[in-house]
Amino acid sequence: MQSTFVCLAALFAHVQHACAQTVVNGQIFTNGLAIIDAPASNSSLHAGSTIQVAIDVSGDGKLSQSASIPGSSQSTRFDSLETYLVSYQKSQNLTVSSGPGLLTRESGSTVKHWNYNVSTCVPAGSYNLTFYEGSRIDGQAYFSITPVPVEVMNDNPSGACSEGMNTLQDYPQRSSSPPSSPWLSSTASGSSVFPSSTGANSSPTSM
């Protein structure tokens, strides 16, 4: 079916709430430059195990490798890309990747990988693996938020989390992203990924 963009937009300052994104052939296209290869929407994350985050930063081959490095002079480029595991219901906001580490690793690769250990302290429930992306498209600055719903499985939590924990902020999270991915044509077909209703209501203080 034809994919649709389903978030509400404010009538001023081009401010939008974090909302559904588009899946095409298993890839999640953010409304910025990133394309999420893994994990898939609604994946189960098991406490005590490692998940791999994989992000195509080439726009399916349309963007030069230098544009993924923060500080690039390209008119279309990444400025930042960070990831958090968030749930308002569970009062969890855990850093998965912050700073330039994700974009600067694996020099020369068009897909960036990041291994994240889901701590045994993370309580079971619905979360969003949320991507915060600063970018420029044809010189215009944007800030996109992409929440990917996931489920954390944990039969025996080890106690309250402390390492990597951030304070929750008020919902809704706001962004200033373009209406759709610049890599998708108007005729692209796909499905929509909706953020978890329990995981969406949070954002990291560092953003």
Score class of each variant (00 low, 15 high):
13 A>D: 14
132 Y>H: 12
77 R>I: 00
177 S>M: 08
124 A>Q: 14
66 S>M: 09
165 M>S: 13
117 N>T: 15
19 C>Q: 03
64 S>H: 08
30 T>F: 05
18 A>V: 05
101 G>C: 06
24 V>S: 07
176 S>Y: 10
88 Y>C: 03
27 Q>E: 12
104 T>C: 10
32 G>W: 02
132 Y>N: 09
76 T>S: 09
160 A>R: 14
182 P>F: 02
55 I>A: 08
22 T>R: 00
108 G>P: 07
63 L>P: 09
13 A>C: 11
9 A>N: 10
145 I>E: 01
199 G>D: 04
105 R>S: 15
93 N>E: 09
175 S>A: 15
52 Q>C: 14
81 L>M: 02
48 G>Y: 09
56 D>I: 03
52 Q>V: 14
63 L>K: 09
39 P>R: 06
207 M>F: 04
61 G>T: 05
83 T>A: 02
154 N>K: 07
23 V>S: 01
34 A>T: 13
125 G>D: 04
94 L>D: 10
77 R>V: 04
197 S>E: 13
147 P>S: 08
65 Q>F: 02
193 V>N: 03
42 N>C: 11
45 L>P: 06
174 R>M: 15
37 D>M: 14
44 S>R: 13
19 C>M: 11
134 G>Y: 10
105 R>N: 15
39 P>G: 03
37 D>H: 15
110 T>R: 06
49 S>V: 03
53 V>F: 07
14 H>I: 09
180 S>E: 11
154 N>C: 04
146 T>E: 11
185 S>P: 03
186 S>E: 08
196 S>P: 06
140 Q>A: 12
79 D>Y: 06
197 S>D: 12
127 Y>V: 11
86 V>F: 07
204 P>D: 01
153 M>G: 07
65 Q>V: 04
42 N>W: 07
3 S>F: 03
144 S>M: 08
123 P>V: 08
68 S>P: 02
66 S>I: 10
149 P>C: 09
88 Y>A: 12
170 D>C: 06
20 A>C: 15
33 L>Y: 04
96 V>S: 00
140 Q>Y: 13
95 T>S: 06
91 S>G: 02
45 L>W: 09
126 S>K: 12
32 G>V: 10
66 S>G: 05
47 A>D: 10
170 D>G: 15
44 S>E: 15
40 A>Q: 10
33 L>P: 08
121 C>F: 10
55 I>Q: 01
90 K>P: 01
166 N>Q: 11
27 Q>S: 05
92 Q>D: 06
200 A>P: 01
160 A>I: 09
7 C>I: 03
97 S>R: 13
193 V>E: 00
80 S>R: 07
86 V>P: 02
202 S>M: 00
64 S>M: 07
72 S>E: 07
6 V>M: 07
63 L>H: 13
89 Q>V: 03
196 S>F: 07
202 S>L: 04
121 C>G: 11
182 P>G: 02
102 L>I: 04
162 S>C: 03
206 S>F: 12
52 Q>D: 12
10 A>P: 00
151 E>C: 03
67 A>W: 06
29 F>Q: 05
132 Y>V: 09
2 Q>K: 10
13 A>W: 13
27 Q>L: 12
91 S>N: 13
79 D>P: 02
157 P>D: 14
201 N>C: 15
190 G>R: 01
5 F>W: 11
164 G>A: 12
197 S>Y: 11
184 L>H: 07
189 S>T: 12
21 Q>W: 01
20 A>E: 12
92 Q>I: 06
141 A>W: 01
169 Q>E: 14
58 S>N: 06
